[in-house]
Design a protein around this nucleic acid. Sequence first.
DNA 1: GTCTATAAGTCGATAGAC
DNA 2: GTCTATCGACTTATAGAC
Lengths: 207, 207
Amino acid sequence: MEPLTTEKEYRILQVARDVFLEKGRQGARMQEIAERAGVNKALLHYYFRSKERLYRRVFEEEVVRFFKNFMDTIPAESDFKTFLQEFVSNYLHQVANSPQLVRFVLWEIREEGEVLTGVLQRLFQGDPVQNNPFIRRVLQAVQDGEIRPTDPKHLFFSVVGMCVYPIIAGPLLERLFPNLSVTDEQFIKERAQEVFQLLWQGLQPTT
Amino acid sequence: MEPLTTEKEYRILQVARDVFLEKGRQGARMQEIAERAGVNKALLHYYFRSKERLYRRVFEEEVVRFFKNFMDTIPAESDFKTFLQEFVSNYLHQVANSPQLVRFVLWEIREEGEVLTGVLQRLFQGDPVQNNPFIRRVLQAVQDGEIRPTDPKHLFFSVVGMCVYPIIAGPLLERLFPNLSVTDEQFIKERAQEVFQLLWQGLQPTT
DNA sequence: GTCTATAAGTCGATAGAC
DNA sequence: GTCTATCGACTTATAGAC
């Protein structure tokens, strides 16, 4: 039995991922991928036929990773306060671990609508809203009176935006604020605390 | 007296902006810029010498625009509640008006650190933190007891993140949530309301 | 200034030896 | 499978006529 992907094929994919995430679809060069992977350029075509196909392969995998990262940060069931606290912390760490992924997806998603549709179909069969565990948990919390009534979609945008923005805008913010390093553990912890505090207070039921 | 930029030079710049913002530095083609501007390709080199120089020119202008857009949305002095409400609404509209700008800056800023430094020097002489009017207004509001003590830097990240994310992630979110259109006036208004409500409640002094 | 024509270089892709 | 060598297409850039 042979493995579906050989050693070299795997290494090429790994490197291709790095290069595409850094330079984007157009900026990436087959030559660079080959060199970094320590193989000949012709081998890339042997395994993947064309740059187009190699890119598709990488893009699809990264979109899946993008959503999986999100899903993986959703904590086990508990009261909504700790749920929210843990989610913010988890997701911030996730994004800080690979800021390039978010940057890449947000840049490239514009040209690759069809691929996205396919991935979404596979990941959330049927209704992507109802099968989004974050959304479900928020609806639950509202029902149980743990937080005030809120549109879960907007809360979702808010939480993700507050986590994602400082990190992908890092190169910019780090020049605006000297001695700021957005991927430092110190900052991430601080950020998690601030985001959670704002959210939690902002979601309290008003009697 | 001749104008510094001729009619055609100006049109080339306009089009170059569009193409670079759509395709990025590497994806953009001089040929396409020439065609869209209705001039010959050689003219691009006559005016701007090289793609590199044309790109720099566009990039620098767009970074300035990026910050100016932010500055322009800062409302005149008033109580912090209406200040915040208006800022969120203004900035959301600003971003929704040219989502490509934010997407472009966040993607390209990574390779163009030096240009950014220069622009920041010109825009905020001296201290970019103290000269950021949003930050100043927040500090003031904390001092006056209008809101609870908060790190203004984090609040800045939160507000911008909540406004920017849904719009640049639009192509993705619009597939997750059918019948969502993130640049529709309807959605922007809804979003402004939700963001403000969350912020305002989250910033109340706790006695 | 603006064009045509073409040079010079880069990049994706393939043929063919091993 | 993996390499060398090279082709052919595309892209930036420039020379030169008008």
